[in-house]
Amino acid sequence: MQPIVVQHISKSYGKVSALRDVSFTVGPGELFGLIGPDGAGKSTLFRILATLVLADKGQAFVNGKDVVKDYRAIRREVGYMPGRFSLYQDLTVEENLRFFATIFNTTVNANYDMIRDIYEQIAPFKDRPAGKLSGGMKQKLALSCALVHRPSVLFLDEPTTGVDPVSRKEFWEMLQRLRQRGIPILVSTPYMDEATLCDRVALIQNGALMRIDTPTAIVEQFSTKVWAFRASDTWRLIRDLRAYPGVESCFAFGEFLHVVMNADPEKVKQDLITEGHTGVAYQPANAGIEDVFMALMRAQTEIS
């Protein structure tokens, strides 16, 4: 039995369609990433799976249970972390954790092994009101609260948005450990670099899934050659490259610009120098998941 099965789910709010015919499955113990920009429909999908919203079309199953008919059973079995911090800001760390344990008819102690790794990091602040925690601490507390009733499936909606890089890294290490325990996790993120940490990812844009595969496979299938360019005036370089005939896409990637084009890089370099750029250099680049995403996004926009 697949822990999460989504079949042809569609959902619209008025004229805006948030999800269009979305289907995928998450296997046992799999860390599955939903990667997409803000407004792509990620949160709507989470809310449907967490039994908070009804889909217009299609079916979804969590642990083999229908999200519409068996919503009550599902609510006992899943751990859900909404995209927006949703704990009681005026209750302390400990009180929040205890409250979410008790309403599931269990106790913090009974499930302490489940949350130990995470909770120990915030335990020094257990008497602090949740509203006064830093962003990273808040997310750790939210994850603890989502885990305290020993869920068999985890839904994490953008758990690392607004969190500093160190805490983000720690957070993902925790997810890796949870995966080792065999808990399937569906996690969404707008950060492309986090995609490579997932077992499989689904790229989502405008409510539709563009591709589902392992991060390596997605990158390997990406056939187009990517060139990395740099020059001393990066901003002017972006402008000039985008205007250059034959350039399909150009966006910043660290100190380089990743460029997809039908042109000879050496000629481009010469033309740039003629235009007054200094320090121009290029090299073949390894396509990252970002490049794939950008290309797919462009393809989708061209179709529609």
Partner: peptide
């Protein structure tokens, strides 16, 4: 308003 209902609704409450 503070969004806690979202979390509460995914509990046996």
């Amino acid at each position: 308003e503070i969004g806690t209902i979202e979390q509460l609704n995914v509990t046996p409450i």
